[in-house]
Design a protein around this nucleic acid. Structure first.
Lengths: 218, 218
DNA sequence: TCTGCCATGTAAGCCGTTACATGATTTT
DNA sequence: AAAATCATGTAACGGCTTACATGGCAGA
């Protein structure tokens, strides 16, 4: 009964409505096509979210028929659009690096909206995500080293597979980061206001290995 | 305030306590080492769960000192063990194929306890999981075909990566299924060998477990 | 007519998490 | 003695899912 707004849902709705106004039903379909593998929402999540975004003034109902014809009794198709405040909020959410941006949940949505995100923020999110995964990898390997002997072969196999998946994602991130850096150095969109002033803190963490960039085009 | 029992947590707790009795704190550490990459629980989840399992009679508090020195007034270290009913419930949960066993959440735990699971059930779960993933793959590809053109390159890249991950898991399952079938026919006991892994591991025999399937059912 | 999709919602509850509170035991 | 860690719990809420309820409109 209380809070219904969310990280991913709010962000995804704002992001999709930024591209084009839509009504709820269509929004949900696009949402699930958009988020694809890693998320799926039902109407029971979406409509309350829309309701609250509306209450916050971040979205608004669109007038299909401004005060003219009396279709008043009709119920169908409430089209929502993003308000100016909604756009602001979207930019704020996308530009805000931090834990939420590189946890499992948040990262996917952020990445999907990278087209709307500033280049330096993109890089920070990618690096943050990589760091997060490497932490997990370390903890994982440590735990495995400690308890290797009393785990049966199925559990070991599960862990091996999990480890491999995370390692794969790290390699993927490395390639993306390399691409971003290259595009940034060449001729991105527009250099930020600190072109020549502030040294961009793009140094990788100490003790980190290099990117063995194998172009995997399997 | 009401329901606290869960699919994964209940199962994991029962499974771990089946191996050896433990107190809550240690249980949680083992739990997180055991579930590793794909799950992590806090005390706020564990203790209520233990409480309810206790109330259901699936676990019981162990006497720390049977007829020994009187550590009686002591509060610390409540050691839990599995009751007979708990063992039954565990077997029931492990032997029950169905949606819960091949969804993202449930599958991992089930797989981790495959050592306790009958061979035919193992196979069914692996195949169920594979089917589930292939359904997802189909839906995904269909959605991609429909909306390919209006997705920007970041979104496409995200989807490509997601797709690849799922395809990878399907291949992994295929190898496991092949191993299971082979081992089943050969009456061997470690199905997990010979898959095309990258590292030449020689899995030591688990050493316990008497669930050798003599006659395959149906 | 009746099945099925479009379209919008509400109520209940699940399955956890986070933050808090407490105290005992070991280490520094 | 202080700090860290072990150890056990509670309260409150979060964020989503499921099931339900409603109704218009299309085509078989």
């Amino acid at each position: 009964m209380s809070g219904h707004r969310s990280g991913v849902l709010e962000l995804a709705v704002l992001g999709l409505l930024h591209e084009t106004p839509m009504h709820g039903y269509e929004l949900r379909k696009r949402l699930n096509a958009f988020l694809g593998a890693f998320r799926a929402f039902g109407y029971g999540s979406l409509y309350p979210c829309l309701k609250e975004l509306l209450a916050q003034g971040l979205i608004a109902e669109e007038q299909p028929d401004p005060a003219g014809k009396s279709l008043a009794g009709r119920r169908s198709k409430i089209v929502y659009r993003l308000t100016a405040e909604g756009k602001e909020r979207l930019q704020q959410l996308l530009a805000e690096p931090g834990p939420a941006a590189w946890e499992d949940d948040g990262f996917g949505v952020r990445f999907a909206f990278f087209g709307q995100t500033r280049a330096d923020i993109r890089l920070r999110i990618l690096e943050g995500r990589r760091t997060r995964l490497e932490e997990r990898l370390d903890a994982f390997r440590a735990a495995m080293a400690r308890t290797r002997e009393r785990l049966d072969s199925y559990t070991l196999e599960l862990h091996r597979h999990g480890l491999e998946s995370v390692e794969r994602e790290v390699r993927w991130l490395n390639e993306l980061i390399a691409s971003e850096r290259q595009a940034d150095g060449a001729a991105g969109r527009h250099p930020l206001e600190g072109s020549g002033g502030s040294s961009p803190r793009t140094t990788p963490p100490p003790g980190d290995n290099d990117t063995s960039a194998g172009t995997s085009a399997s």
